[in-house]
Design a protein around this nucleic acid. Sequence first.
DNA 1: TAGATTGTTAATCGATTAACAATC
DNA 2: TAGATTGTTAATCGATTAACAATC
Lengths: 230, 230
Amino acid sequence: MQEPISENIVLRLARYLRVLHKLKSLGFVKVFSNNLGDAIGVTPAVVRKDFSIIKISGNKRGGYSIDTLIAELERILGKSSRQQVIVAGCGRIGTALMNYTEFRKEGIEISSGFDIDPAKIDPDASPPILHVDQMQDFIVEHGIRVAILAVPDQAAASVFERMVESGVRGFLNFTTVELKCAGKCPDETCEAECIVHNVNISLEIENLFYLVNLRNQLQDRVVVDGQQTN
Amino acid sequence: MQEPISENIVLRLARYLRVLHKLKSLGFVKVFSNNLGDAIGVTPAVVRKDFSIIKISGNKRGGYSIDTLIAELERILGKSSRQQVIVAGCGRIGTALMNYTEFRKEGIEISSGFDIDPAKIDPDASPPILHVDQMQDFIVEHGIRVAILAVPDQAAASVFERMVESGVRGFLNFTTVELKCAGKCPDETCEAECIVHNVNISLEIENLFYLVNLRNQLQDRVVVDGQQTN
DNA sequence: TAGATTGTTAATCGATTAACAATC
DNA sequence: TAGATTGTTAATCGATTAACAATC
C-alpha cells in the first residue's frame, strides 16, 4: 500500500541527489545511510525510511550503490537534461538571476527574460530580453513549466495569472505578494495545480532579527533565574 | 506553564505583523482571527492559538485591536527601528541585494558591503563597499547581528566563521554550502547560537521541476486507472 | 436576547525517532 | 562467525484541526 511521497520527501531526495553526484565525482561507489544523513543533516533512519518509501533498497551490509541511487532518484524526480526557465521582470534581482552562473552548472537554462520597459528589450542578448506581451506565446511555444517572478509587486498578480494560463506550473516568487493558484485557472481542477515557492528576502531578514532577538531573550531568562510570570 | 514559542510561530507572527501594518494604513481598527488567517493562508484556529500562546487576548465579540496587536507583536519580536545588515560578496547577487529598494521600506539598512577584489572597493559609495579584511572590526564596531552571505562557495566557510567570531548571529546564506554553526564558535555553548537561513536558488528551481513533474505523474496515475504495482 | 467570536481542550494527523529483527 | 547495516514496526513528538463552552 504505497505511501504518499510528501513534499518534504521530494525536497530531501533532491538534496540526496546532489550529494550523490559529488560523491560519485570523487570516485565513491557505495554509500551508507549515515553518510547521506550527515551530508544533509538528518538521521540515518530518515534516509532509510525515505528510500524505503520510494522502494529503493540497499544491501544489508554494503550500503547503497551510488550509481543505482542516482539513476533511481533521477527517474523518480523526473530529472530531464534541460531545465528551461523564464524570468519575468528584468530589474536588479531579475537581471542578477538571468546571469546567475550557478544555474548552468546545475543544468538550468534561462530561456528568456521579459520586461515591460522598451528600453530593456534586447532579443539578441543572451539570454534575450523580450517584451512581456510576447511572454504567453513564448511559454506555449517552448513548453515552459517553471518561471521566476521578479516583477514589481503591483504587476505580480497579473503576470502570474497570465503565466498560469499559458501553462507555467512552478513559480519562484521574489515579490512580496502572496500568490494563490486556486481560482485563477480556467478550469476548476486547479486547486493544487501549481506550486509557488516564495523567496521573500526582506521577510527573511526580519525573521533573522526576530529569531536572534528571541534566542537572546530565552538565554537571558534561563541565565538570570528560574522565575516566570505565570 | 508557558508554552515554548517555536520557530514556526515566530515566522507566522512576523507575517501577521506585516498584514496588520497594511490594515492599519487602510484605516482599520479591529481584526478577526479569520481575516488574519485568510491573509496569511492559515485557519482562524491557528491565529487564535498563536495569540493565546503569546498571551495576547481579544474581545469575545469584537475581535482584536490592531493597535494592541501591532504593539504586542513588535514587543515580542523585538522589532527595533533600525535593522542593520551587512553583505559579504559584491558579485551580481550581492550587488543586487545591496541596492534592493524593498529593504528601505521595511526598515532594513545595508550598512556596508564587503569584497576581496580591490577593484570593487569603494568606501564612498552608498552603501560603501569595504575590503573583507575590515569586516570583523566593522561588525564589532557597529554591533552587526545579521548578515547576507553572497560570496563564492569556496569562500563561504571562512567568511562565515569570521562573522560568527565577531558576533553575527543570523545569516541569510546565498551560497550552496551547508553552514553549521556548532563547533565553529570559540566557546562550546554555541550549539544553537546562530541561525542560518538558506536561499539556494538553483535547488529551489530544481525542486519546482521535481514537484511539477511529480504532480503530473500523480494526476496521470489517478486519471488513467486505479492500478498500482504493489 | 441572539448571534458571533474568542480561548482552550481534546482529537487528529503526519513526521520523526527508537529499536530491533533480519541478514549480508 | 561476528559485526555492521538495512528495512520496518511501533512509540514519540509536535503541530494542526475540530469542537464547543464562555461571553461580549
